[in-house]
């Protein structure tokens, strides 16, 4: 599979096999170079070889890939030890399909889903359906771990639906509401 990885404002094309089997070597292509790689999930290591006999161990300390049904783009957040230091990466990855250039031109609705980033309990809902939102506005309050967490939006639009009510328990990723732009 061919992927486009957006990192630090630059796009990198990465070619990978359709399936990666843990513990088995596979070929990987990036920036005109072919590498052999082996993924060891339990050790949290990706071994890279470029043919000079030196195995390069990339340590995957923490990796989060977020993706949603119906959306091509995955959000990547990873803490990777490589080249003698730790890298904190915020990136996106998506299939490199012909005729689908540029990360911005995503087809789809003008409706933005606001999801919970934490697990907790809805303490208060500060808006109602049909309300206009402005950038920086607080939408609701979620209680978690003895803290009150206000959820803000940066979007100016109209609240088109609210999927939770006060007192609801929510987990990370739960749809809270939608804002029509």
């Amino acid at each position: 599979m061919d992927l486009r990885i957006e990192l630090n404002g630059r796009t990198h094309k990465v070619a990978l096999p359709a399936r990666i089997t843990p513990g088995q070597a596979f070929a990987l292509e990036v920036a005109g170079q072919t590498l052999s790689a082996t993924l060891l999930p339990h050790a949290a290591v990706l071994v890279l070889r470029n043919g000079d006999g030196l195995e390069r161990n990339v340590h995957l300390r923490r990796t989060v890939v977020s993706s949603f049904a119906g959306e091509m783009e995955s959000q990547l957040r990873a803490e990777i030890r490589l080249g003698g230091r730790m890298h904190y990466t915020h990136a996106t990855g998506q299939p490199d399909l012909p005729g689908h250039e540029g990360g911005q031109a995503r087809s789809g609705s003008r409706e933005q889903v606001v999801r919970s980033q934490i697990t907790g309990k809805i303490l208060k809902i500060l808006i109602k359906k049909g309300d206009q939102t402005t950038s920086g506005q607080a939408l609701l309050v979620i209680e978690a771990m003895k803290m009150e967490n206000r959820v803000f939006t940066q979007l100016a639009g109209t609240v088109s639906s609210i999927g939770v009510k006060e007192g609801d328990a929510v987990s990370t990723g739960k749809e809270l509401l939608r804002i029509k732009l």
Binding site: L3, V14, L76
Partner: peptide, 8 residues
């Protein structure tokens, strides 16, 4: 980027 590709 290659590592991130593998993760994806």
């Amino acid at each position: 980027a290659a590592v991130l590709g593998v993760l994806t």
